[in-house]
Design a protein around this nucleic acid. Structure first.
Lengths: 111, 111
DNA sequence: AAATTTTATCGTATTTTTACGATAGTAAAT
DNA sequence: ATTTACTATCGTAAAAATACGATAAAATTT
């Protein structure tokens, strides 16, 4: 009785929310920015560039991977992460469409 | 030792993450869609259209209001909520820019 | 072969989130 | 004036999220 209820919502609503949720932490934003800046998919360099404990970074990477926004090749000594174009584009499309569905100029006269 | 650390991150990263976080729940997506569909800012009709308890809806509305995405005129008998154009546009800009900062075609050769 | 480096995972503590019933307080209707 | 309708808030319970130290396991270096 504390889990997010999913039955009442559409698959699209759930996907959209879950992608947004993955973006909903500054550390994960920072990690994604590093992955975008460095064209090649660097690995533990993220730990050097994001000032959180290694275990915490690893945890955030897992969240991002589970969301589909990044792809990770887990190798014991040199793990490799990078943006997953499919997931990223899905986020871009879903969030973009959703945020465009409100039109500033059309709707107003509100509280 | 379980709160999100904010010191290591920029204001922009924090704002972006916090807007995304507000969008990170299907119920809040559904609420926003209702507010967008109904041009006028309906009030407790949200409770009728989103199948969660009234108290839960109220809680989600508070989260959305705190994020700046919606505006709420709280009146004891007929509360009025609507999209807050400023907050919405900020989300659109920040998320749009961020999601556009990765270019599918430019970057590849990854893991 | 031994030492070092890298990194995922475990264990754990704290906080936040999610959800709901119950309640209170105000406005509108009777 | 009393009843009804609406809605924020309180209290609470359970789960998830955040953060980190410690550990293990594999690859690389020495």
């Amino acid at each position: 009785m504390a889990t997010t209820k999913t039955e009442p919502f559409s698959a699209k609503q759930i996907t959209l929310a879950s992608l947004a949720k993955a973006l909903g932490h500054p550390a994960r934003i920072a990690i994604l920015q590093v992955l975008i800046e460095e064209k090649t998919c660097i690995c533990g360099d993220i730990v050097d560039r994001v000032p959180l404990a290694q275990a915490t970074i690893s945890q955030h990477l897992k969240v991002l991977k589970d969301s589909g926004l990044i792809h990770g090749e887990i190798a014991p000594n040199r793990s490799c992460y990078c943006i997953n174009p499919e997931g990223w584009n899905q986020a871009k499309t879903l969030l973009g469409d959703f945020l465009s569905s409100f039109d500033d100029t059309t709707s107003q006269n509100c509280c």
